[in-house]
Write a protein that binds this DNA or RNA. Structure first.
Lengths: 141, 141
DNA sequence: TACTAATGCAACTGTGAAAGTTACGAATAA
DNA sequence: TTATTCGTAACTTTCACAGTTGCATTAGTA
């Protein structure tokens, strides 16, 4: 598994689940599909559980399933659940003690913030069932 | 200097330059403003030079200046010059040999690709002079 | 010419965040 | 009571990137 691929792993898994929402999938199973390992899967999906997008069941024949209908989960929900900020802003450097420098830094930060917001708005336009695709493709076992 | 801060460094520097486009600034000077060091600055700005956004002059009294007017440089130009892809897609895992898996991976990739494109479109709506701000703020020496 | 100040670049080290791994406790179905 | 699964902590590994050093090249200046 590559770097910064948690969003990709999450989307892949949720889309997969959209195909058969009632079935429980184990971390091991998902890990195999994603080319990674169960603990990493639990880490990533744990964030989605905290956000109320997934439900996990412990014990024998436990596993993961969607907490909502695939058409009610937007990509923004997933992105925000993972708590990643792609267009991150930086701390002001020591040089920014000067007020002019500080003002410039503020403006750069504000612009990046706006870009981040527009990214989230864009993400909210697509839902998981859109990613899963049309029914002709059949179900993913 | 923090992680993934190259875009921030680039925007900060270009915005700064927008204040007095004719003045040459040395890497050392820029580094001090940004709280980093000259070689890192040359690395980042070198990408912008390759993209035709900046001009560098070697030798005594050399340095960096804008190659274009601040109102002709969009944030998308800067982002693309740095060759960073914030919404990265993954290689298909070994599990994707199955055609259904492969198709799903393709769809996830396509969605992420569209998000990336929309990010660039959004970035292209802002130019460097917008970031520099209105004239009342005065020039940045 | 010699000197100085700047970029360009290669090669290397240091760092930190995220992936990967191991281990074990808790929960739950069979 | 046994097997299976998640939850989580602790640790190691990996890797991209910042940081650093050194030197060649370029160009202005005395």
């Amino acid at each position: 598994m590559k770097r910064n691929s948690r969003l990709s792993l999450a989307l892949h898994t949720l889309s997969h689940m959209a195909g058969s929402p009632d079935r429980l999938r184990t971390s091991a199973e998902i890990a195999e599909h994603s080319g990674t390992n169960p603990v990493v899967v639990r880490r990533v999906l744990g964030k989605l559980r905290q956000a109320g997008l997934l439900i996990s069941e412990k014990g024998h024949s436990g596993g993961w399933r969607l907490a909502l209908k695939p058409e009610d989960i937007t990509l923004a929900d997933v992105y925000l659940a993972l708590d990643e900020r792609m267009v991150a802003t930086n701390e002001p450097s020591e040089a920014s003690v000067c007020s002019v420098e500080y003002a410039l830094h503020e403006r750069v930060s504000r612009v990046l913030e706006e870009i981040e917001e527009s990214l989230v708005r864009k993400l909210s336009e697509t839902v998981i069932s859109d990613v899963h695709g049309v029914k002709e493709d059949g179900e993913y076992q």
